[in-house]
Design a binder for these strands. Structure first.
Length: 802
DNA sequence: CATTCGTGTCATGAG
DNA sequence: AGCTCATGACACGAA
């Protein structure tokens, strides 16, 4: 017993710990009340999980005692599903408050406004920011100048209040940089650690992405030459080593690497090949345009620049279907995420184009809004809150915009992209998705974009097309996958999505599998249970666990279906419960603790009928043993159960064991053979009823324990799977980042090799490479409008297929 | 002495 | 209608 107790206690403790780890917030009350039915059942007692199934009688109908219908297997199926869902929800929703706090801390250091704490303030701040932005449309230019920086920072901070440090690095302001400069390596490391924790918790890290973007943008500001250095620096940052203090600003918020990782979100499955394929696929414009279209829809409405960020965030959250109690937390988190994304987009975004579109199109159709607001999600998706930011970016935007977008893309692709981003942000339900979007944007965002916002940079924007395209495609896939994953798509649906995307990612599959893994574990457990329940085992082991060996033999011969379940029970109990039963089976122990004598044949007390071949001989042996130790009668009385004593008192001619375990027919025959009084018959029936109920209770308790243990195991398995998936995700993100770098370098290489008619190299600030749908690469002046581009592109063919 | 745990028993509902 | 099972609730004894 002690062993069992210990085992269970430890197990429960471990279970609790696991839960706490998985679900960042282990609020027992919450879970009990709403979230985790299994837990509730475990803690408060069985409910639906143990609900009787209709199958329990199958045992009788089927051959003997097959798997008990109610055995853990069935329960497992449902409990596992529930558990899995719970875990998933935890993944998405749970946002450790601690994380938020940390972020706040960073922000505080960076910005003035940020002082306010995380979630709640975000709304107010956002509003304020939005107001300011609206009021100060012109502020941004001034900010660029440098004096305006503080304001810009303020706005950013306000808008991003929830976002925390990330926002701090608004595109425009150097002031932010300064604030960021304060960050030390340790800070970065701390951020990274926090980020990892967040990941474990399931929280997204758009913030980081944002910073990364900013970082990149800032880096790009300088001349192209500097870009290389910056890229290197970025690398260092990503690696967690801030080699250069000059750029710490962005770097701190942006520890680019870790942050980007989350961006992939659930799509961990994306493989390098897939990414490459996507890259190739993205080059043709037509495809891109179509892709986003799917995603678009409802969320678009949200994106009004003028609308305060909070307003946006809230609607997004409200849109979410989830109606569960966690919603409060979830909504807050979602709001935060949405805001963050929006802000990030804004920060990156500074293109005049977007601004103009926004201004004019706020009331326009969703698409127009999207185009205006999100223009290029990847590059700069200014949106709601910071009008000033948008305007500030305007000057540069005019230049940058054309560069980034080909004429064709402008109209069509832009909207889709924006929409995609929107989705990610709006679909806050999936933290991962949002992260993925942001992360991707951060990853792929060409640095120049940011720079463009900040300055009329002369820096080459070469990488833009690639990055944007890549980003879009990636975002699309990610968002889709995330949606599929997190929205609870069926496996088939998920697989379908995957097929559509041609993604290698097993993520969706994995996730689907994740449930399977637990199930497998459970199956093992259940299998054991089921095996135990088999009639064979029963017969062999004897009726109840308490029966002695001698009894067993008898039982085998005579006992039928009645006792069938018991053996299984004992076997099942192997883990904890079973052991005790086994102990009980030992006669010595029997005497010690409880009387489980129901099934025991009352050897001495009862006069075994000669008819009943069974226990007599063996029982006699046992009696002899017991008699040696103690006076037989007293001992028997002492150890016999109440029913046994009553039976003895009533002179019942056969053993309680038979009374209890004999099949109905045999039992009736037995009764018929003996001339029994009414009192005797009543007693016998009571004995039988109680005995059966006793066994049933034991089985019931055993099942309960098994269920708990299996759940525990399931949680462990799920956790393991989660860790593995996260690891994969990180790897994929890393590979994507590498690919992006490759693309950029490739772009640079190609661009640098291009020469005009006079043999002079093209100025990266004036020309950019554009990719047409047929796969050819064109070099076009950056200032060109889309229409112009179509008409007279300077063509230089390059088969630039990677 | 109070609490916890294991167990037996009863009542109830379902097949 | 009776039997059996499952399970919640309660009681009891042991630790």
């Amino acid at each position: 017993m002690l062993y069992l107790k210990k085992y269970f206690t430890e197990g429960l403790i471990q279970f609790t710990i696991l839960l706490s780890l998985i679900g960042v917030r282990v609020d027992v009350d919450t879970y009990l009340s709403n979230q985790l039915p299994p837990l509730r059942e475990i803690i408060l007692g069985p409910s639906s999980a143990y609900t009787q199934t209709q199958f329990h009688n199958l045992r009788n109908t089927l051959d003997g005692y097959g798997i008990h219908p109610k055995s853990v297997d069935l329960d497992h199926f449902f409990t596992t599903r529930r558990l899995l869902n719970q875990v998933r929800q935890l993944d998405r929703l749970s946002v450790p408050s601690t994380e938020l706090n940390t972020w706040l801390v960073h922000r505080d250091s960076e910005t003035v406004v940020s002082a306010s704490s995380q979630s709640s303030p975000s709304i107010t701040l956002d509003n304020g920011a939005g107001l300011e932005d609206v009021n100060n449309p012109d502020a941004t230019p001034a900010m660029r100048g440098g004096s305006g920086a503080p304001e810009s920072t303020y706005n950013l901070n306000a808008a991003e209040s929830t976002l925390g440090a990330v926002a701090s690095e608004g595109n425009q302001e150097q002031g932010n940089r300064e604030g960021n400069d304060d960050l030390t390596k340790e800070d970065i490391d701390l951020i990274d650690i926090l980020w990892r924790q967040d990941i474990d918790l399931g929280a997204g890290r758009e913030v980081f992405n944002y910073s990364n973007r900013q970082k990149e943008a800032e880096e790009e500001k300088p001349s192209p030459q500097e870009n290389k250095d910056r890229t290197e620096q970025q690398e260092s940052w990503r690696n967690g080593v801030n080699s250069q203090g000059a750029q710490p600003v962005d770097g701190e918020t942006g520890e680019s690497i870790p942050e980007q990782l989350p961006g992939l979100g659930s799509q961990t499955s994306l493989s390098l090949q897939e990414c490459l394929r996507l890259l190739e696929a993205t080059f043709p414009f037509g495809e891109e345009t179509e892709f986003p279209a799917q995603v678009v829809t409802p969320e678009i409405s949200v994106s009004n620049e003028e609308v305060p960020s909070t307003s946006q965030g809230l609607p997004l959250a409200s849109q979410l279907p989830q109606a569960e109690p966690q919603l409060d937390l979830e909504q807050q988190w979602q709001d935060i995420m949405a805001i963050m994304e929006l802000q990030a987009m804004e920060v990156n975004n500074t293109t005049a184009h977007t601004n103009s579109s926004n201004d004019s199109g706020t009331s326009g159709t969703p698409e127009s809004n999207n185009a205006g607001n999100f223009g290029l999600s990847s590059r700069s998706t200014p949106i709601n809150q910071d009008v000033s930011l948008h305007q500030a970016s305007l000057p540069s935007c005019s230049q940058d915009f054309p560069q980034i977008f080909n004429p064709q893309l402008d109209s069509v692709s832009l909207t889709p992209r924006t929409t995609m981003l929107r989705l990610s942000s709006s679909n806050n339900t999936n933290i991962n998705s949002t992260f993925g979007a942001t992360n991707l944007t951060g990853i792929f965002l060409p640095p120049h974009l940011n720079t463009s916002s900040n300055n009329i940079t002369s820096t080459p924007i070469l990488p833009d097309p690639f990055s944007t395209l890549l980003e879009e495609s990636m975002l699309d896939e990610i968002s889709l996958l995330d949606l599929a994953m997190e929205e609870g798509f069926s496996q088939a649906q998920a697989s379908q999505l995957e097929d559509e995307l041609d993604s290698d990612s097993g993520l969706s599959l994995d996730s689907s599998h994740s449930p399977a893994s637990p199930s497998s574990s459970e199956t093992s457990c259940s299998s054991a249970a089921s095996s135990s329940s088999t009639s064979a085992t029963f017969s062999e082991e004897g009726a109840v666990g308490y029966s002695t060996d001698s009894e067993v033999a008898t039982v085998e011969t005579e006992e039928g279906a009645v006792g069938g379940y018991q053996p299984g029970y004992s076997k099942l109990c192997r883990m904890s419960y079973q052991d005790p039963s086994q102990f009980h089976s030992l006669p010595q122990l029997d005497s010690i603790s409880h009387n489980h004598t129901y099934n025991l044949p009352l050897s001495s007390a009862f006069v075994e009928h000669p008819e009943l071949p069974i226990p007599a001989g063996k029982k006699s042996v046992r009696d002899k043993q017991s008699s040696k130790l103690q006076p037989p009668q007293d001992l028997l009385d002492k150890h016999s159960s109440r029913d046994e004593r009553r039976a003895r008192a009533m002179k019942i001619p056969f053993s309680n064991e038979k009374i209890i375990n004999l099949p109905v027919e045999e039992f009736n025959e037995l009764l018929a053979k003996h001339h029994l009084s009414e009192a005797q018959l009543a007693l016998i029936r009571d004995i039988r009823r109680r005995g059966k109920n006793k066994m049933a209770a034991q089985n019931c308790r055993k099942r309960k324990l098994d269920t708990i243990l299996n759940l525990e195991q399931g949680v462990q398995d799920l956790r393991r799977d989660k860790a593995r998936l996260l690891k994969e995700k990180m790897e994929f993100i890393r590979s994507i980042r590498q690919m992006k770098q490759k693309m950029q370098s490739l772009y640079q290489e190609v661009f640098n090799q291009l020469r005009d008619e006079e043999g002079r190299p093209y100025c990266p600030s004036e020309y950019s490479l554009q990719y047409s749908a047929d796969g050819s690469v064109l070099i076009m002046p950056r200032g060109m409008t889309s229409a112009e581009q179509n008409r007279k592109p300077e063509k230089k063919q390059k088969d630039k297929k990677k």
